[in-house]
Computed example of a mutant assay.
Amino acid sequence: MIVIYGIKQQLTPIKAELSDVIHQCMQEVLGFPEDKRAHRFIPMEKEDFYYPGGRSEAYTVIEINMMAGRKVETQKKLIYTLFERIEEKIGILPIDIEITIKEQQSYQWGFRGMTGDEVNDLKYKVNV
């Protein structure tokens, strides 16, 4: 699951395109299938969204929650690919993008009535 935060006036007009770019990166780097998109957009009022100095109102936070297992190199490639593609396709500079990857053990995930360590029909690999 991916959660994206930003100032409402900046985030709302681009969220469909940003979702497409993020998903394309997840497919390319992690091998996600087309139907594996779980994005949550949190558009915030400007007065509720504090961000570091030196950033613009385009400042966007992307939190990627995933099951543990991806190599360090794979995670870094995902981060760099996101920086590059978001700038290229949407025009948000890397200085205005913050990305965090939060890993949880597979038994800490629950979906389709089971935990992640019980599922055996994923259409993608976790250990890449």
Rank of each mutant, 00 (worst) to 15 (best):
D48F: 13
K89S: 14
V61T: 12
I62N: 09
T100P: 00
Q27V: 05
K102M: 09
Y80S: 12
E17D: 14
D96R: 03
L30C: 14
L93W: 01
L30S: 02
S56Q: 09
P52W: 01
Y124F: 15
I42G: 00
G31I: 01
F83H: 15
P52V: 06
E73K: 13
I97F: 04
I90R: 11
W109R: 11
Q104G: 11
K71N: 13
G116S: 05
E45W: 00
D96K: 03
E34Y: 03
Q10V: 09
Q27I: 06
Q9M: 06
G31E: 01
S19P: 04
T12F: 05
I99C: 07
K89T: 07
G6D: 07
Q27T: 03
E47L: 01
F41K: 01
T100L: 11
T60S: 06
L11C: 09
G110V: 07
F111A: 11
V3A: 09
Q108F: 07
G69H: 09
R112M: 02
M67V: 11
I64L: 13
D35T: 12
I14N: 04
S106N: 09
E88V: 01
T100M: 10
F111D: 04
Q104S: 14
E17K: 15
A38L: 06
R37M: 06
R70Q: 09
G110P: 06
R70Y: 07
Q24E: 14
K89V: 12
G91R: 03
E98D: 11
C25Q: 12
Q108H: 12
Q105F: 04
G69L: 07
E84M: 04
I62M: 08
Q27R: 10
I99K: 04
D20R: 14
Y59I: 04
K125C: 09
G110C: 04
K89F: 05
